[in-house]
């Protein structure tokens, strides 16, 4: 069964062990700047949010690549960058609407999460369960609910945003977040 990273910001303490683990696994050095998962800090609220590629079905990065350097990993569902094929044109970095494909000047290539080939170190390193690697179906329903609440809408619409009813609420930000 396909698995996916489940990210639960409310469990994140901002310890950055995921970034340490990711960078070590992928570059051989503990260097959070090179981590493919990032913990974003919300100082005003005292909150943290880990975020990385969701391996989305649309695969904007993969379809925008002009040289077939991003490919679907059939085993894990991840979209992997083939470093030796990537020319470093960066089109994928602007095509990805989630901002999770980044250019790395040192190597002249782009990097993104590849789920460590099916054994993601960020999840193994996370001490609080904010990052888990679970059956994709388990993250799907909750994600759908979250997105249904956050569906694109014209500015001005929803002066009184619809409130979630009945369902158990996961990932439902208020309008404009926080």
């Amino acid at each position: 069964m396909l698995k996916a990273l489940k990210l639960e910001p409310e469990k994140c303490t901002g310890c950055l062990q995921c970034e340490m683990a990711c960078s070590f696994e992928n570059t051989g050095a503990f260097n959070p700047a090179k981590s493919r998962i990032k913990v974003f800090t919300f100082h005003d609220e005292g909150r943290f949010a880990p975020y990385t590629c969701t391996q989305c079905d649309e695969a904007w990065c993969m379809h925008a690549c002009p040289v077939e350097a991003i490919v679907l990993n059939m085993a894990t569902g991840s979209k992997d960058v083939l470093s030796d094929v990537c020319v470093g044109c960066k089109v994928c970095t602007i095509a990805c609407p989630f901002g999770t494909v980044n250019y790395e000047a040192d190597s002249g290539k782009v990097v993104k999460c590849d789920l460590c080939g099916g054994d993601p170190w960020c999840a193994k390193a996370c001490p609080t369960g904010a990052i888990t690697y679970v059956a994709a179906d388990d993250t799907g329903m909750e994600r759908m609910r979250a997105w249904a609440q956050q569906a694109p809408r014209e500015a001005g619409a929803h002066a009184n945003p619809p409130k979630a009813k009945e369902v158990q609420v996961f990932n439902v930000p208020q309008q404009g977040g926080l």
Partner: peptide, 9 residues
Amino acid sequence: ACTQAIGHN
């Protein structure tokens, strides 16, 4: 913050 839950849930 605008698309994911950052803890208020």
